[in-house]
Design a protein around this nucleic acid. Sequence first.
DNA 1: ATGGCTTCATAGTGAAGA
Length: 255
Amino acid sequence: MRIATWNVNSLKVRLPHVLDWLAVNQPDVLCLQETKQEDSQFPLVALQQAGYQAVFSGQKTYNGVAIISKTGATDVGYGLPNFPDEQKRLIAATVLGVRMVCVYVPNGQSVDSDKYRYKLAWLDALREWLKEELVRYPELALLGDYNIAPEDRDVYDSQAWAGNVLVSAPERAAFHALEQLGLRDSFRLFEQPEKSYSWWDYRMLAFRRNMGLRIDHILFSAPLARVCTGCSIDRAPRKLERPSDHAPVTAELVG
DNA sequence: ATGGCTTCATAGTGAAGA
């Protein structure tokens, strides 16, 4: 089973890239973030023609999440039940017996911002809710744009970024609190190239210079981590014309 | 250099992203 996550930064703009990527990579599940589309505009027909089904929760301009899968998704959940929120940042569904939780964690903007406090509160609610969700669904994958680089090696210039949003100690503590629920960062279950990142700023020729951060993650509960055989970041779509600033992350499960 | 791009909502610019 191949499952993936990709912040597409507008599904309307990126639909051709998504369709091409599905055709080449044939994942069983692809979680999307920042679709930036109301549900009435979601390109369900194009995806169905490509052999996929989808569940989605979107809004105009910002946010928006979706779970695309070859087989149907059941028991769809929208948002955090313990954190009422207008922003469409979470969708959960069961696919092939695995609970997929697709998240677009708030960015936070800067550590002195109200948006930063909202980010930490959102992450706290996520952790509280996941405690119960993991009891209901022991085979659980938490995929998405976390907007957190968990360690210094996930940052191209950790000195320059020290204390900044995306790398600050409270954000990293929130990430590690998720790991303390038993979730494992699938990327770090395997040897990886140095300077592996999943996001590069559009400015500064950042991609060409590999000035990136690893902020998109696939975390697995213990039963899934045991059968995970690989995790990788695909830089190819970042090289296309009009790319998303994020690259897709893919993990493989057997059994 | 506190910008640099990109998207979206707009019909000039401004917000937001990370």
